[in-house]
Design a binder for these strands. Structure first.
Lengths: 143, 143
DNA sequence: TCGTGTTATTGACACAGTCCAGAATTGGAA
DNA sequence: TTCCAATTCTGGACTGTGTCAATAACACGA
């Protein structure tokens, strides 16, 4: 009896007590294959793959996957939310001001960059999010 | 002839070639008095102060003030845009996950924190934005 | 005070995302 | 295998921010 790899999407869902459905697997596959897609892009990909899916199902699925930590939601300003399956590591993002493209970056400062603000104003801080802004290679050429 | 202080709102607008209007002065005053307000809050404050103002005028004014660098627009996820008049210094923000309250923080790492990502993927980066997430004092108590 | 270019008003519209209620599907018990 | 309760999906209406376009009003220099 072959031992299944832990990151098998089916096992992943089961481990979190979630039912296994075609839609969920398709959403997981889409997010995994092409990180930083928008909900709309994911909806299109899933529909292409399994024929039909409602927008609501996509949003619900993304929400429940996010809540269970299987995927991560990032929301740059002036852009719809984007999703990625790279979780459990402390990485950040660089966003193109022109086309909205997103890429992963690791911060050079360390594994927990800037987690210590000078004054925390009584806030209990649980996350530091770093967003780099600039122009992607394509948009530099287009100038 | 007394020399006017440079940060006089009227002079500020003139310096940037912008006409001086009651609405603009009221918007500047609102943003200055209570930083991190939303456009909606600002609209209410301005309306209270000068009687009547259209939503569009508020948005236009905020846009033109932002474009000229008189105010700064910050846009936390799951929250409408907020505005502040503290510009020209490299500070960041801490946002309450519960109520959306925003406070200024200076990063302890240095004046230009995390500006050097490990891999920039060909992007030309012009800004690094740091957002801290947590709970504000009031919302800690409410738990 | 007048003329011109800028700014404000009004109302329609766009977009991302959410809510709701009923229908369908699923996992697990028998 | 069949059935039940819980979960999930569907379709449509709806919200909240924000933008566009056309017209009216205003600010400011001459």
């Amino acid at each position: 009896m072959p031992k299944r790899h832990l990151t098998d999407p089916v096992d992943l869902l089961r481990e979190h007590g979630m039912q296994v459905t075609v839609q969920r697997l398709a959403v997981l596959r889409a997010v995994s294959q092409r990180p930083h897609l928008t909900a709309d892009d994911i909806e299109k990909m899933v529909r292409t793959e399994i024929g039909t899916v409602s927008r609501q199902a996509v949003y619900d699925t993304l929400a429940v996957l996010t809540a269970n930590g299987l995927i991560r939601r990032i929301q740059p300003a002036h852009s719809p939310a984007r999703f990625e399956d790279r979780v459990d590591d402390n990485h950040h993002h660089v966003v193109c001001r022109q086309c909205g493209r997103v890429a992963d970056v690791d911060c050079a400062v360390g594994s927990a960059p800037c987690l210590e603000p000078a004054h925390r104003h009584g806030f209990v801080i649980d996350e530091a999010e770093v967003m780099y802004w600039g122009l992607c290679p394509d948009c530099q050429i287009a100038r």
